[in-house]
């Protein structure tokens, strides 16, 4: 018994050491990007996609939903920051958290969809994102800037927004690391595997799902806000672009849903690949993204980390 507990402790130690290691590598690397004069834009978006894919993982990998309208949270966040800053003269550092709040409010509005499952949920999510886009598109032009979008004016500050994005990423990853070991995380996973059984085992399924859903909605909304600040402009076409959902899903799946490291690795690999392709064949970019998705589903449906853990189940306890 005692020996067993000790073994468990050592597994935990490896787990958290690995997590700390990965965390500090990411931290040091990204922190030094502006200092060393590396490509700020590339790394900004890398962090954005790591955050998006990781937050998406909470809804899909942990809770078992496939929100194909995930971009709605991102778009609402982008517009919240833009409108608050531009029209209500809010300071940015107040507007950004409010973007997250907007994401949570939207997630609460969508909460009734959580009783759907499988493709029904996916389709409804897609439709709701479409409705969001149309509603914002048709709001008065004084508010949302119409088809020209909203310019944030002279507030752009790439390096500052870069570090804010980094902070958001760190908070997101820490949250998910916590979640993956927490009781809420276990309840979510049980709900994903068999909601009725989980309920009969005493899990308050609706509440647990709602918590997961809110976590999953908060971060993309903040990402939308930070990106609006970074690019200095927001319009409905880009803020609600379905490609944002596509990329988020693909990156998360590529790495492996349900693990902490999966979406990070997936985002890093795919964003890097994307950039490479983009430079070489700018026209073929979309085509290759599409083909990559097909190949991924057919040949690596569990993603990089998921496939590895399938081959080496005994590593599950050590790899975050």
């Amino acid at each position: 018994m005692a020996a067993r507990s000790r073994a468990l402790d050592s597994a935990d130690r490896i787990y958290f050491t690995l997590a700390a290691l990965i965390g500090s590598v990411l931290l040091v690397y990204f922190a030094s990007v502006p200092l060393l004069g590396l490509n700020v834009a590339f790394h900004f978006y890398l962090m954005l996609w790591i955050t998006m894919a990781s937050a998406f993982n909470v809804a899909s990998g942990f809770a078992g939903y496939m929100p194909f309208g995930y971009v709605a949270f991102y778009g609402i966040g982008a517009f919240t920051t833009a409108i608050l800053v531009k029209k209500a003269a809010f300071p940015l550092f107040l507007a950004l958290p409010l973007s997250g709040v907007a994401g949570i409010v939207l997630a609460l509005l969508f909460a009734p969809t959580l009783r759907l499952s499988g493709i029904y949920f996916g389709i409804v999510s897609l439709a709701l994102a479409g409705i969001c886009r149309l509603v914002i598109t048709n709001m008065p032009e004084q508010l949302t800037g119409g088809s020209f979008g909203l310019q944030l004016g002279s507030r752009a500050h790439p390096v500052q927004s870069f570090y804010v994005m980094m902070a958001v990423m760190v908070v997101a990853l820490a949250t998910i690391l916590w979640l993956s070991r927490s009781r809420l995380g276990k309840a979510l996973r049980a709900t994903r595997d068999d909601a009725d059984a989980a309920e009969m085992m005493g899990v308050n399924v609706p509440i647990v799902r709602l918590y997961g859903w809110l976590i999953s909605a908060f971060f993309p909304a903040v990402c939308g806000g930070v990106e609006a600040w970074y690019t200095n402009v927001v319009d409905t076409e880009t803020a609600f672009n379905t490609l944002t959902t596509a990329k988020t899903v693909i990156y998360a799946v590529a790495g492996g849903l349900g693990t902490v490291t999966g979406p990070i690795l997936g985002a890093v690999a795919m964003v890097w690949l994307d950039e490479l392709i983009w430079r070489q064949f700018p026209l073929l970019n979309l085509l290759i993204l599409g083909l990559a998705t097909i190949i991924l589903v057919l040949f690596l449906p569990r993603g990089i980390v998921g496939t590895l853990l399938r081959k080496k189940p005994q590593w599950r306890r050590y790899i975050p």
Partner: peptide, 25 residues
Amino acid sequence: GRTFQVPRVFRRMSLIDNLLVPVLD
């Protein structure tokens, strides 16, 4: 507490985690 005619375990969770589910609160 109950069991099911056709087992309904939490497929992608470890056995330990399966047992923890009913005592999470």
